[in-house]
Design a protein around this nucleic acid. Sequence first.
DNA 1: ATCTATACCTTGCAATACAAGACATTGAGA
DNA 2: TCTCAATGTCTTGTATTGCAAGGTATAGAT
Lengths: 107, 107
Amino acid sequence: MSQTQMMKGIIDGCLLAIIAKKECYGYEMAESLSKYGFDTISEGTIYPLLMRMQREGLVTSVLRASTAGPKRKYYSLTNEGQQALNDFLSRWGQLEKCVNAVIKQEN
Amino acid sequence: MSQTQMMKGIIDGCLLAIIAKKECYGYEMAESLSKYGFDTISEGTIYPLLMRMQREGLVTSVLRASTAGPKRKYYSLTNEGQQALNDFLSRWGQLEKCVNAVIKQEN
DNA sequence: ATCTATACCTTGCAATACAAGACATTGAGA
DNA sequence: TCTCAATGTCTTGTATTGCAAGGTATAGAT
């Protein structure tokens, strides 16, 4: 019962939501999640996720130079990725409803 | 990005919440979760979870006869289990807040 | 006698988050 | 100049978990 376990199947959807808002690169997404209140999410979590989502055709990427370090890999949503985001939002809403029903204990 | 992954680290907390409401046995908890809106949760998920939580001292169990089948193993919360439930509720609330913040995209 | 519902359990698999590293680039300070 | 911190991406191995698929057993109904 750790926070780590509770994150499973959540982070990928959150990344899609962040990318949907604006083109973004991994390092920036980690900071973004932190800003939204998440405990620091490891890069060992984020980068493999992004690569998997690209392999699945949910996102595309382009390299761009940075003024303050090595090149950045900017990600954008594909139509399939938008659909995956919609699915995630739907499943998250469903989960939220069910868990809160159990917690509130109204039979 | 399956519903299965999203359930990880959630079901144990839900079981604690159900047990906290009233003494309960595994088979009944599965039905209860279903009633609260969850897709059917496998007994291969629930029984190992209950055994783990007992091993960790979060719940205790007693066998009682049933009128319609084999004996039932009724579970109750320990003080440690109540604490674990409180922790879960806190972590769930935190997760809910963060995910919804990302989704709503208010910077 | 057979079937269904009830009730518990086990084994093996697939998926995921993370720790702990490695590697490369840039600018600032000693 | 040398060093160091911040930036930026990636890999390997581990631990945990939900579940499918199966097994076992009891009680009542057909």
